[in-house]
């Protein structure tokens, strides 16, 4: 079991290249997602904070 893990992590002697490549890919992909979600949350929160003041004019015909 431990041997199998060691073989897997060893990547046939190329661990120093394979793992950094995979980790770097994951870091770039995940940070793009996190940054984009942060932008979305920030904008939507600001929008929510603004809309109450605006509501009387926007709700045409509503009770």
């Amino acid at each position: 079991m431990l041997d199998a893990l060691r073989t897997f992590l060893g990547m046939g002697g190329y661990a120093a290249f394979v793992w950094p490549a995979l980790i770097l890919t994951a870091v770039v992909l995940v940070s793009m997602l996190v940054l984009s979600l942060q932008d979305l949350r920030r904008a939507e929160r600001t929008l929510q904070g603004m809309e109450p003041a605006d509501r009387p004019r926007r709700r045409r015909g509503a009770a």
């Binding site: 932008d39 979305l40 904008a43 929008l47 603004m50």
Partner: peptide
């Protein structure tokens, strides 16, 4: 999709301001 929605929301903020 996430980024376009964020952009739309921030443009709406801008327009409201």
């Amino acid at each position: 999709l996430i980024r376009i929605r964020a952009d739309l929301a921030s443009r709406k903020v801008q327009a409201l301001r």
